[in-house]
Write a protein that binds this DNA or RNA. Structure first.
Lengths: 132, 132
DNA sequence: ATGCACCTTGTAGTAACTACAAGGTCAAGC
DNA sequence: GCTTGACCTTGTAGTTACTACAAGGTGCAT
């Protein structure tokens, strides 16, 4: 598959795909005899992963770490464990925040259905005590 | 509370707080007689909201919309409903992605505990079919 | 043989910060 | 009373993660 089709399928612009390749987050694919990048389903999956992880607010550095978990098959369990645990913590915090937001949005929609506007506590949904 | 303390409490730099004020996402607070910005708990909550929403990958534009839901008390239920529903959809998609990621990270940690490295399917966790 | 998708390198724009400089005010501590 | 640190302003410039476009070239289908 060429870059244009991969771009259409994943919703990532061709230029962004080449950018990811330059950044080393997406390996340089084989080339056709015409020097076109030739992508397969593995690259498609990896690109979808990157795009979704970015959408979830993970930085490129963090995504690189996550991808390393995937790439370094011959890695020590201790290393994998520590990194996976740290990512798991971040993921769980994000889930908790999003669930609070979901609850509040659901509450507002329900109130609207009964035509009782109600007060909006959407800020409170995410405004728990701060910790970086 | 002055800007420095708010910055310490929320983990948002003073310069970023002023930036949010310039951008109109955080209202200009009252000033002390010394012309210092004077923040209260409401601003703290709003700032925590903004910071967390950014961390979850919401754009400033999207955050502005969410805050509008909170600010415009005298808004039509139809308008609130449509906007809340659209945000709810995005939130639910994000939760689903994060839950897949959580499951896979948990699986890797569990495998490591038994010293059976196992294969990493972390990419598959987020690489479902694409839709922008 | 025309047009479109691809190739390269390079520059520049965007969003959302982040940093720092210059020049000034305010108030607490020595 | 004077220094020090936190604040004020305006302004410029750097960072990350793209996004866009230009110039000049290749491959290939119609």
């Amino acid at each position: 598959m060429r870059i244009g089709q991969l771009a259409r399928i994943t919703g990532v612009k061709s230029e962004t795909i080449r950018f990811y390749e330059r950044e080393g987050i997406l390996a340089a694919p084989p080339r056709t005899q015409a020097n076109y990048r030739d992508y397969g389903p593995a690259e498609e999956a990896r690109l979808n992963f990157i795009r979704r992880a970015r959408d979830l607010g993970f930085s490129m550095a963090r995504i690189r770490e996550l991808l390393d978990l995937s790439d370094d098959a011959d890695r020590s369990c201790a290393g994998i464990d520590a990194l996976a645990r740290s990512h798991l913590g971040e993921v769980e915090r994000k889930i908790a925040s999003l669930e609070a937001l979901r609850t509040e949005l659901g509450r507002m929609i329900a109130a609207c259905e009964q035509d009782t506007v109600g007060d909006c506590r959407i800020i409170d949904a995410l405004a728990g005590t701060a910790e970086p």
